[in-house]
C-alpha cells in the first residue's frame, strides 16, 4: 500500500515539474509516466538489491535510455525526458537530514548523512553520463559511416 501511494505521488511530482518546465502535449504525459516507471523500477529492484546507490544507478541508466529513445522518436532534446522522470530520485530527504544533523552535535551522523547524499547524487549522475556517452559514441559512429 505504501509503495502504491509512493508511486502515485512520484507520478504527481514528475508531472508537476514537467508542467513547470513547460513540457506540453504527448511529451508531458510521457515525461510524467517516466517518473512513475522510474520509481516503480526502484521499488522493484529493492526486492533483489539492498544497496540504494546501486539501485539509483540502474534506475538512472534506464531513465536515460528511455529518454534517448523517446528523444529520437519524437525529434526533441533528450533533456525533456530525463529531468522530470529523475525527480523522484533527487535525494531531497537525504539532503535535509544532512542539514539537520549538522546541528545534532553528532559528527559521525552528519558525515554519514553527507556521504549518503553525495553517493546518491553521484549514482544518478554516473547513470546519466554513461548512457549519454554511449549514445554520443553511437551517433558519431553513424555519421562517420555515412561520410565514408
Amino acid at each position: 500500500m505504501t509503495s502504491l501511494i509512493q508511486i502515485i505521488v512520484a507520478f504527481c511530482g514528475s508531472l508537476g515539474f514537467a508542467v513547470l518546465y513547460n513540457i506540453r502535449g504527448k511529451k508531458l504525459a510521457l515525461a510524467a509516466l517516466g517518473g512513475l516507471l522510474a520509481w516503480s523500477l526502484f521499488l522493484f529492484l529493492g526486492l533483489f538489491i539492498d544497496s540504494e546507490p546501486i539501485r539509483y544507478l540502474i534506475v538512472s541508466m534506464t531513465v536515460s535510455l528511455y529518454a534517448e529513445i523517446l528523444a529520437r522518436a519524437l525529434k526533441t532534446p533528450a533533456t525533456t525526458f530525463i529531468i522530470a522522470p529523475l525527480i523522484p530520485l533527487v535525494p531531497g530527504g537525504s539532503l535535509y537530514y544532512t542539514m539537520s544533523s549538522a546541528f545534532s552535535g553528532d559528527l559521525n551522523l552528519f558525515i554519514g548523512n553527507a556521504v549518503h547524499t553525495l553517493s546518491l547524487a553521484l549514482s544518478i549522475a554516473i547513470g546519466v553520463v554513461v548512457v549519454a556517452a554511449a549514445t554520443h559514441f553511437i551517433m558519431r559512429l553513424r555519421t562517420l559511416k555515412k561520410n565514408v
Binding site: G13, Y21, T79, I83, V90, G92, A121, A125, V129, H136
Partner: peptide, 21 residues
C-alpha cells in the same frame, strides 16, 4: 523536504554533466 525538492537545482547538474562529458 517536500518543499526542498522544489529548490534543488536538478537541471543544472544534469546539463553540466552532459556538457562536461
Amino acid at each position: 523536504i517536500g518543499n526542498i525538492m522544489l529548490l534543488i537545482p536538478g537541471v543544472g547538474v544534469i546539463n553540466s554533466l552532459r556538457d562536461l562529458l
